[in-house]
Write a protein that binds this DNA or RNA. Structure first.
Lengths: 136, 136
DNA sequence: TGCTAATCTGCATCAATTGCTAACTAGCAG
DNA sequence: CTGCTAGTTAGCAATTGATGCAGATTAGCA
């Protein structure tokens, strides 16, 4: 994801306004490796800006996602998570503490797939389940 | 997933009762390659047994899943899907029609992962997104 | 400084799933 | 075959994550 400053320019260039709410969320997500849910981010944001709406968090994060600045990840735990890392990477999920971490998989683009039957693959997402170092 | 007859025995052996509702669901899921949602299965079941409860569908499918007879798959489309194929396999999802199909990935157990950092991987699920032959 | 489209808040709504309980029944014991 | 009882079912309430909506507000250009 771009820096808050770059995002400000990108938003304006797209005819979108840059509000204090959005700037706060830019800052909270920039370099964030926690893979927060909308709700977690809302809590964080509320500390610095009491009264901010959960709706606004969803809105802004959705905007960022559709601009390709962040990725939505669904680890099947109820709520979607947001990941500012848009590199070609994948995720490990700790079954105990729910922690999500980025990992890089060699040759993930060149997997040998049987049964495709004419299906054209656009993207691949790999999810590893297990236990993190702390919970093991 | 085992055959309806085998499941009947397995349920009894576990102290679970075999009701007509469960038998119907055994039959509907056996060899089913449609990856139905609970709701889709409920509709199908309702044809043969009007009055069956959606709650019962969820209950029975959850029981089957915890007995290892079927797998829950979440393609991030809102509702969980049920897959009676418990082999080591993965899924492709058509972004257009939503269709889900089983595929087999060579060496999916031996991916070279960077950034694990002490994380112990138990299971891997790979999701391929793209367009199926019909929608392309 | 004013205008106007974009945004925000707060609440209603929706969809998937689970919780709860009274009525019912599979399946064993006698 | 009959009765008992633990396990099940139906139906509805409740929960959770997410989105729709409208009136008040505001960013940012002229």
């Amino acid at each position: 994801m771009k820096s808050p400053t770059e995002l400000t320019e990108a938003f304006r260039a797209n005819g979108l306004k840059v509000t204090p709410q959005r700037q706060l969320l830019f800052r909270l997500m920039h370099g964030n490796t926690m893979h927060p849910t909308a709700d977690a981010l809302f809590s964080e944001a509320s500390v610095q800006m009491p009264g901010i709406s959960l709706r606004t968090v969803y809105q802004t994060l959705t905007d960022l996602a559709s601009m390709g600045e962040l990725r939505l990840i669904d680890v099947g735990a109820g709520a979607v998570r947001f990941d500012p890392n848009v590199d070609d990477h994948h995720h490990v999920v700790c079954q105990t503490c729910g922690d999500v971490r980025d990992v890089y998989v060699a040759d993930s683009q060149n997997l040998s797939i049987d049964g495709l039957d004419g299906f054209a693959v656009d993207s691949t997402s790999i999810l590893f389940h297990g236990s993190c170092a702390r919970c093991a």
